[in-house]
Amino acid sequence: MATTQMRTTARLMLAPSVILLLIWMVVPLAATLYYSFQNYSLLNPITSFAGWGNYYYFLTDPAFSSAVVNTLLLVGGVLLISVVGGTFLALLIDQPIFGQGIVRILVISPFFVMPTVAALVWKNMMMNPIYGIFAWLLSLFGLPPIDFFAQIPLLSVTIIVAWQWLPFATLILLTALQSLDGEQIEAAEMDGAGAVSRFIYLVLPHLSRAITVVILIETIFLLSVFAEILVTTNGGPGTATTNLPFLVYTQALLSYDVGVASAGGVIAIIVANIVAFFLMRIVGKNLEA
């Protein structure tokens, strides 16, 4: 991009996709904004201007504050598990072990399982209190089974979602690990650094950028986790696992109220932006060259 001409050409060439993306973004956003100010119920053909009514209704819904907390807990929990677990797994499968190729594919494979299927498998095969694998494992030690979705519903959903995102984190961190200069590690070895010091002083700083990428990308998707909740707990018990997207869904489809659901959507966007703002403040500096 050295010359003016090249910059102009580049902009021209980029224009179609940028315009398309803008339309793609702006039209639904505008529609959502429009409906959020309308009294618009699917049960009532008459629509009218609602002012801030929909927002007021959504924000004062007793489920709203818990939905925000649940969303943040879910995002935070999954990030924690996938980043820590992903780093650990990446370190493990970076070692020259027998059957490395197969092990790597196995580790990556959960990523290819559809969220609904993954959630169903976890619900019925792993976490079921009667014939689930966890219940069986506990029974081996003479312990009573845990009814996951009744006793620790949010944690259970977090575990399922984390299981799906762990491969992504592992993959990104593994590639980052492989780009670490072997001579640096050897130099540290000669400098008397043990395995733990090498990890803290060399590997972790080297991974910081990749970890940032993982956190940012995962956050985008985790803010809108939906299928896993629908399949396992349906937002319950009560509102224990209702996050913002699920709350919007209950408003829109269960209450047939498009206006309030749209207001919820707009609020979800605002919450996402607040989260993004703080994320960039915290980890964004790692992305600078």
Binding site: E183, Q184, E186, A187, E189, M190, A193, H206
Partner: peptide, 20 residues
């Protein structure tokens, strides 16, 4: 192990720690 030999090495690529 390398650390116990009391030797210091200068590598061809220097192997400096880039973030320090």
């Amino acid at each position: 192990p390398p650390a116990k030999r009391g030797l210091a090495m200068v590598f061809q690529s220097y192997a400096l720690y880039p973030h320090m």
